[in-house]
């Protein structure tokens, strides 16, 4: 019997660096050229199967990047096991924002959080403003994982999520992993799916 794990992952980064696109590529293997800016926070799930047949289910919170919603972000990265902080390689300002997010996570998030720094839009290397060396050096200094990705082409997307899965503490599953498909934040020990099927009348109204 293969092992199953479940982790909460949060995506952070400046507006328009491609957070939602990266998730869409990872979860559905799709890409939209024109995506509306996320005003809110979306919840998605995707499962990664490792070589030893261990499965890791990511419960992903894709958050709004706009500055005005920054105060809400802590509510979403609270209890997160891992964070993907995104910047756009064609804009050095977005790396600055990424540094701010990382500082905030190191200060306020769970101390054991696994942080990955991702340079997105690697397909636009011609307009590159952030060099690989610069970002990589920063990541090494801070002890972060680092990769460049392209949500458009799919380059590096699955790789970074798989790498995160491998880096997570797969020996001691977090308590939520036992609850099967339960949602993050569902109060501990409450299996929401079970509860649903136990609802009287629920069965009959599915008809």
């Amino acid at each position: 019997m293969s092992k199953q794990f479940q982790f909460k992952l949060v995506l952070l980064g400046e507006s328009a660096v491609g957070k939602s696109s990266l998730v869409l590529r990872f979860v559905k293997d799709q890409f939209d050229d024109y995506r509306e800016s996320t005003i809110g926070a979306a919840f998605l799930t995707q499962t990664v199967t490792l070589e030893d047949q261990t499965t890791v289910k990511f419960e992903i919170w894709d958050t709004a990047g706009q500055e005005r919603y920054k105060s809400l972000a802590p509510m979403y990265y609270r209890n997160a096991n891992c964070a993907v902080v995104l910047y756009d390689i064609t804009s050095s300002a977005t790396l600055e924002k990424a540094r701010n997010w990382i500082r905030e996570l190191q200060r306020q998030a769970d101390p054991s959080i696994v942080i990955a720094l991702c340079g997105n839009k690697s397909d636009l290397a011609a307009r590159r403003q952030v060099s690989e060396e610069e970002a990589k050096k920063y990541a090494e200094e801070e002890g972060l994982m680092w990769a460049e990705t392209s949500a458009k082409t799919g380059d590096g997307v699955n790789e970074i999520f798989t790498a995160i899965a491998k880096k997570l503490p797969l020996t001691a599953p977090p308590p939520s992993a036992r609850a099967g498909a339960s949602r993050p934040g569902g109060r501990t020990g409450v299996d929401l799916n079970k509860q649903t099927t136990a609802q009287p009348g629920q069965e009959a109204c599915n008809c």
Partner: peptide
């Protein structure tokens, strides 16, 4: 609350 949905499955039955 934000980032912490409650019992959505139960709530949907109540609303419905």
């Amino acid at each position: 609350f934000a980032g912490q949905p409650g019992d959505d499955a139960g709530d949907v039955v109540r609303i419905r």
